[in-house]
Amino acid sequence: MEMTTGDVSDATRRLLQSLRMPGQPEPFYAVLKDVLQETAGFIFVTLFLVHRGETLRIFTTEDELYPTGVRKPMASTAWGDLVIGRQETFLATDLRGIRSAFFDHAKIESLGCGSAICVPIVYDGKCIGSLNLNHREHHYTKQHVGMIETFAPVLVPVLLDAVHRLDEA
């Protein structure tokens, strides 16, 4: 099913309205999960925060293999240079693209995934995180990228809240 501009606008509106709900960030994540499944579809999704020279996974739909709370030092990789450094979206449409970008490609493939979209979340000129969707091979297209890029700025307050909570802890 092809999404229309109205569908994407409605999804964005739902995400923005979810920020008003108490008990954040769980209500936002529930709506985000629904919106992403309805618009682009996914097998699994992760959201990470760039914090103090590391990445920190703060949301996942695949708790067993990709749990939240995992920190990784930011190493210089082609993927990191593209998404974090240049603040450009990564699109892998096939297994070749997955294998070239991710050291854990075997784990990704074991879940039935062969395409990915990774969209930088940018605030104040800096990449503060990335929204990462994974699906079967050849699922994602440039049209999906455009939809997900539309939602990315809505994640800024959630990531800034995560930074605030980490800095207070």
Score class of each variant (00 low, 15 high):
Met1Gln: 10
Met3Leu: 15
Met3Ser: 14
Thr5Arg: 08
Asp7Cys: 05
Ser9Met: 10
Asp10Lys: 09
Asp10Trp: 07
Asp10His: 09
Asp10Gln: 11
Thr12Ser: 13
Leu15Phe: 05
Leu16Gln: 14
Gln17Leu: 14
Leu19Ala: 09
Met21Thr: 13
Glu26Met: 04
Phe28Met: 07
Phe28Asn: 03
Tyr29Met: 06
Leu32Lys: 03
Lys33Cys: 06
Asp34Ser: 15
Val35Arg: 00
Val35Asp: 01
Glu38His: 08
Thr39Leu: 05
Gly41Gln: 11
Ile43Tyr: 10
Phe44Thr: 03
Val45Asp: 06
Thr46Cys: 01
Leu47Cys: 02
Phe48Tyr: 15
Val50Pro: 01
Arg52Pro: 01
Gly53Met: 07
Thr61Met: 02
Glu62Arg: 11
Asp63Cys: 03
Asp63Asn: 12
Glu64Leu: 14
Val70His: 07
Val70Asp: 05
Arg71Gln: 14
Pro73Lys: 11
Pro73Phe: 05
Ala75Thr: 08
Ser76Met: 06
Ser76Asp: 15
Ser76His: 13
Ser76Thr: 07
Asp81Asn: 14
Asp81Gln: 13
Leu82Thr: 13
Gln87Phe: 12
Gln87Arg: 15
Glu88Gln: 15
Phe90His: 15
Leu91Thr: 02
Leu91Lys: 04
Ala92His: 01
Arg96Val: 10
Ile98Asn: 08
Arg99Asn: 12
Arg99Ile: 00
Ser100Ile: 04
Ala101Ile: 00
Lys107Phe: 00
Glu109Pro: 00
Ser110Asp: 14
Leu111Asp: 07
Gly112Leu: 09
Gly112Lys: 00
Gly112Asp: 11
Cys113Ile: 05
Val122Leu: 09
Tyr123Arg: 05
Ile128Asp: 04
Leu131Lys: 02
Asn132Met: 05
Leu133Tyr: 07
Leu133Gln: 04
Asn134Phe: 15
Arg136Leu: 10
Glu137Ile: 08
His138Gly: 00
His138Lys: 09
Tyr140Asn: 03
Gln143Pro: 01
Met147Asp: 02
Ile148Trp: 01
Ile148Thr: 07
Glu149Ile: 03
Thr150His: 06
Phe151Cys: 00
Ala152Met: 07
Ala152His: 03
Leu155Tyr: 09
Leu155Cys: 08
Leu160Phe: 06
Val163Phe: 11
Val163Met: 15
Arg165Tyr: 11
Leu166Arg: 13
